[in-house]
């Protein structure tokens, strides 16, 4: 059964980053990778993150994903301050598990379990029973139209199907934020557009903010809002917001 849209009360921003700085090293060897980053994404919104190699994109993703600690600043995720010049009392793994979804360049599905279990593993990690977790996974696979491939191992799935399963996995725990690191990189133009369309639909359906790192010229015009990063400085831009082809 396809679930209805989530009706939880919305915080104003799914993620709100204020004056975030990240410095690697110290003293004369210190490198300021992120400089006073300000960024905010509303629930259900998909924004692009653009920038050349070495601009600080990965560092920004690591900080937003609670994988590395910023040097200073404030991060509010799903209405909860998780960093304010220091981490709160959260267990980062629990934080990532419950509030952040990840989509990678390659799907990076676990090759030894079925598509269904690749999605179900997230709810299982939260302590849900196998049956509940698989029901949730099947719902998502149905929404993403890969339910007919649910019991197939990833190696038997096409690239597009694998990426849909990866999207379902990212959505499995209803995160406030999904970080998508070049999710269309391995796909052709047609499939890239399909995946981006799906991401946009999922963001709206599940009220999840999605930050998409991309270099894809075909995708960039589809964002309504963009963040461009260069030398650790983030600028907000208005996107073209072109509609996706049917």
């Amino acid at each position: 059964m396809i679930p209805e849209k989530t009706t939880l009360p919305k915080p104003r921003f799914a993620i709100n980053v204020e004056n975030m700085v990240k410095i690697y090293g110290s003293g004369p060897n210190a490198v300021k990778a992120l400089k006073e980053v300000n960024l905010a994404v509303r629930p259900g919104e998909v924004v692009g993150l653009l920038g050349p190699s070495g601009s600080g994109k990965t560092t920004l993703l690591h900080c937003l994903g609670a994988v590395i600690e910023p040097t200073s600043g404030r991060i509010t995720l799903g209405g909860e301050v998780i960093y304010d010049n220091g981490w709160g009392k959260q267990d980062f793994r629990t934080l990532r598990r419950d509030k952040i979804g990840f989509i990678f360049q390659a799907p990076y599905l676990f090759p030894f379990i079925s598509a269904l279990d690749n999605v179900a593993i997230l709810p299982m990690l939260t302590g849900r029973s196998n049956r509940q977790a698989r029901e949730r996974a099947l719902e998502l696979l149905t929404v993403l139209e890969v339910d007919h491939r649910a019991h197939v191992k990833p190696s038997k799935l096409s690239g597009g199907e694998q990426q849909r399963v990866a999207i379902a996995r990212a959505l499995a725990n209803q995160p406030a934020l999904i970080l998508a690191d070049e999710p269309t990189a391995p796909l052709d133009s047609e499939r890239s557009l399909i995946v981006m369309k799906i991401l946009t639909q999922m963001a709206e359906r599940y009220n999840t903010a999605i930050i998409v790192v991309t270099h894809d010229d075909l995708i960039i015009p589809r964002f309504k809002r963009l963040y461009r990063i260069r030398d650790g400085i983030v600028h907000e831009e208005q996107g073209q917001g072109l509609p996706f082809p049917d």
Partner: peptide
């Protein structure tokens, strides 16, 4: 090792 990194990233204990 990649699978282990992903497991850690998605919150596996």
């Amino acid at each position: 090792i990649k699978e282990i990194a992903i497991l850690k990233l998605i919150g596996a204990k």
